[in-house]
Design a protein around this nucleic acid. Sequence first.
DNA 1: CCCGGGAGG
DNA 2: CCCTCCCGG
Lengths: 292, 292
Amino acid sequence: STSTQTVRSSFPLNQAYWGNTLTDQSADQQKTQFGSRSSCLTVISWNIDGLDSDNVFDRVKGLLSLLGKYRADVVLLQELIPPSLKILQNIMKDYQFLQASEEAYFTGILLKKDSVQFLQSNIVKYPTTEMGRNLLIANVSFLGRPLSIMTSHLESCKTGSQERLNQLRRVWKWMKEAPEDHSVIFGGDTNLRDWEVKKLGGLPDGISDVWEMLGKPEESRYTWDTSINDNNEIPNSIRLRFDRIFLKPAAEGAQLRPESMTLIGLERLKCDYFISDHWGILCTFIFGTSEE
Amino acid sequence: STSTQTVRSSFPLNQAYWGNTLTDQSADQQKTQFGSRSSCLTVISWNIDGLDSDNVFDRVKGLLSLLGKYRADVVLLQELIPPSLKILQNIMKDYQFLQASEEAYFTGILLKKDSVQFLQSNIVKYPTTEMGRNLLIANVSFLGRPLSIMTSHLESCKTGSQERLNQLRRVWKWMKEAPEDHSVIFGGDTNLRDWEVKKLGGLPDGISDVWEMLGKPEESRYTWDTSINDNNEIPNSIRLRFDRIFLKPAAEGAQLRPESMTLIGLERLKCDYFISDHWGILCTFIFGTSEE
DNA sequence: CCCGGGAGG
DNA sequence: CCCTCCCGG
């Protein structure tokens, strides 16, 4: 349609296709292209490095391109900043935006309106954070089933270990205390080192690490990888699994289980930067029984 | 005698009195003054901060003054450097010197010849030290009883924790494997934090921390204390019990037990420095039965 | 030989 | 947002 063309030309990206004027037909085709079915839940989690002010516009364009390509039901973003948020909101009219703050940088939950029904949200404070971090929660309905969606950007840097683990315990506590009939998905930049999780005695009963559930695929292990990503100009090759997705399935009924996990944002932009210093995680879930 | 005067005047310290020409009478008076008896073993352990090149001569003079004041049977030094060692050797003719290395800085054991009979020595390597540290052992006879005397300067700094604990395990192993009829005394700069000992499950059976045996006296707790000692110009007040003495009594016969522990080197020199950034430990032991 | 922060790789 | 080194406190 003309209006669709207008949206495209006002935002000149080769792969960009956005707007609430997009026909249902083309949206469905899009979903089919990436193997989704209507019972499949697609989640993206991504620290988009709002603290890096270089090439911000190019990087947001690249982000929009990929978000448009995958059209995830739920997008969990960390290090959103007001200008980038504004751009996303202006383009992604078919998503509902929740944000954990208005200032500096913060997390956000984007819910695809046509598949995810927003019910309520909650912002949980981390009382001792020195970096303004918190936990953002959205309770939603997806295919008639209740979901709790959570995201956070846990305290950064090796030196933040103690505080980060306090925050992680709080995340797990909120996951555990979610209603039993809710499937709970946490996705975010945890800044975790494996030894830190070990230090807490591993994951609590009932909560799983989605990457581990999928058999620890090497190709989607490291979400922060300076051997490839040089946005930060770090000469050493360091690879860490900072970004993680945790799942607590509902106690009864069809169980949500992970189907795939892929890293996104691996392509270099024309400006030679990557969209972020983190790769994004694209994760699909499906409702099923243990029998199938 | 004239030669004694010569020694004194060639090393102009108010409190210095040294030389193998010192009369037995004055030596005994000296010992009596500090409460020693012939069955009492006096041990000094001290990291004399050879890595600090400021006021070296003044500091060595101060050290000599105190070593002369106490005339310990055994002196365990860490951070000896060749020039300081040479001065000590030239003055302290009544001591036998053992050193763990010839280069850089190293530990030494000084044995008072008229009370301690040297039998043999051993230098144990720490295979993974990054700071050239090792364990120096002397087997001696004191009052006809066999003693194992050990000293070491365990890996420094908070970051050296892992290596330091490896070294500590090795020290304890050598203490445990000393002959059963030997009393074993380790004294040195362990650089230990209390949580590190806890991490190893505490002291092994049969080995005790002398400061703990004496009831953890607060006044001899912290051997490194920047609230008083400003040699390192550290503005924060940090107090740590880096320097420790471990004891493994002989399996049979009269048991060596600690009698007192005092910190030394607490006075400021004329140059306004302390002798070292560490206090020294002055410790007395006595042979006795558990009945007395 | 404490700790933290800042620069450079 | 990695690490190491250096400096100042």
